[in-house]
């Protein structure tokens, strides 16, 4: 194991034990959990612009759909969180397919405009369909995440109002999404997406059905977005339509671009940086007498700076799909052995 990996492991372990420390502050925990929500979103969004090369400006729409699905199912039917997560993911994916199937024939800018319109539609729907969503009044009183283990022991029924358990559930979900993303990236599916991003015509002539794979990408991305929304709903316990405004999409897109399009770890890092930056700016800008909203100007400035100095993000997506896969490691060894044998025979010939 290299030094870098060891350091990373150490930092990870440190962060994960932070909530258990006696000095841990609720505010820091809240920011960390929020960062993890955005990690889920950034990983999900990464599929569409990162793997497939399509600009998606309406990601927050699926986030909103997932959040309201979770909120409404909790309030009206009292379903447990663990049942709602897959349902919200399915609902998100369903809307992903409904939006994607007709519009993914569009390319580039036109597709971006359609997705932008979609996210605005979702906000309008949430604002105006008062019978369902209570509109601008918002959706208060959502139960927190519960864990019902009373079938094991009568006393094991937990309601997670505290910050700490929510932090761990968020960490669990980030780990799960990360795992799924890594496996998808190093598979037939991930390679098909990479092919579409690199050269659609060549991908088609390799037998990749471009439209199908774009729709699949869009649906999975939407499903992950909805999972993020689902956790957010049960964690914040209150939803309102203006939480899902366009700029959230833009923020998540910034995270993906900042980390490096198409790189899963990059999306994680981007989420951490921008969430922390948002918090810092909120404090510091109000301290010097500017309204907190001016932080959006700072985001814009950051984007400009990234484009100028790190056009491919912190982790440029290298063609590393599955470099750590045992199959490839084995192949690498065989190739090295072959090269060595060749060298030897050349030496003996000389």
């Amino acid at each position: 194991m290299t030094k870098g990996k060891l350091l990373l492991l150490f930092i990870g372990a440190g962060l994960l034990t932070y909530p258990l420390l006696p000095l841990s502050s609720d505010y820091v925990l809240h920011v960390m959990t929020l960062a993890m929500v955005y990690m889920i979103l950034a990983m999900g969004l990464n599929i569409v612009p990162g793997f497939c090369g399509l600009l998606d400006l309406g990601y927050v729409g699926f986030y909103g759909i997932g959040a309201y699905t979770a909120g409404l199912l909790t309030i009206h039917y009292g379903l447990p969180f663990w049942v709602i997560v897959p349902l919200a993911a399915l609902n998100g994916a369903l809307w992903g397919v409904l939006l994607g199937a007709p519009t993914l024939r569009l390319t580039g800018d036109y597709f971006a405009i359609v997705t932008f319109g979609f996210s605005e539609l979702v906000v309008l729907f949430l604002t105006n369909e008062i019978w369902l969503t209570r509109g601008p009044l918002g959706l208060p009183g959502i139960q927190p995440i519960t864990l019902n283990l009373s079938w094991l022991n009568k006393a094991w029924y937990f309601e997670f109002y505290e910050k700490t358990p929510n932090f761990y559930i968020a960490a669990l979900m980030v780990a799960l999404v990360y795992f799924i993303m890594c496996r998808m990236e190093d598979s037939r599916l991930g390679r098909a997406w990479y092919a579409i991003r690199e050269d659609p015509l060549a991908a088609a002539s390799c037998g990749v059905n471009i439209l199908n794979y774009k729709v699949i990408a869009f649906a999975i991305s939407a499903g992950i977005g909805a999972v993020g929304g689902c956790f957010y709903a049960r964690w914040s316990m209150f939803l309102s339509p203006d939480m899902f405004k366009f700029w959230e999409s833009f923020l998540v897109l910034c995270m993906v671009v900042l980390g490096g399009l198409g790189n899963i770890k990059g999306a994680l890092l981007g989420a951490v940086i921008l969430v922390c930056l948002g918090e810092i700016l909120r404090e510091s800008l109000t301290a010097i007498g500017l309204p907190a909203e001016t932080r959006f100007i700072a985001y814009g400035l950051i984007m400009v700076l990234i484009m100028r100095f790190k056009p491919s993000g912190f982790f440029p997506a290298v063609a590393s799909s599955g470099r750590s896969n045992p199959l490839l490691i084995d192949l690498q060894k065989r190739l090295a052995a072959g090269a060595a044998a060749k060298e030897k025979s050349r030496d003996s010939a000389a």
Binding site: Y194, A195, E198, D199, C206, A319, S321
Partner: peptide
């Protein structure tokens, strides 16, 4: 028209 940012093997795997 190769997938230039991928490896040689990945080009064939696709």
């Amino acid at each position: 028209r190769l997938f230039t940012s991928l490896t040689v093997l990945d080009n064939i795997r696709i």
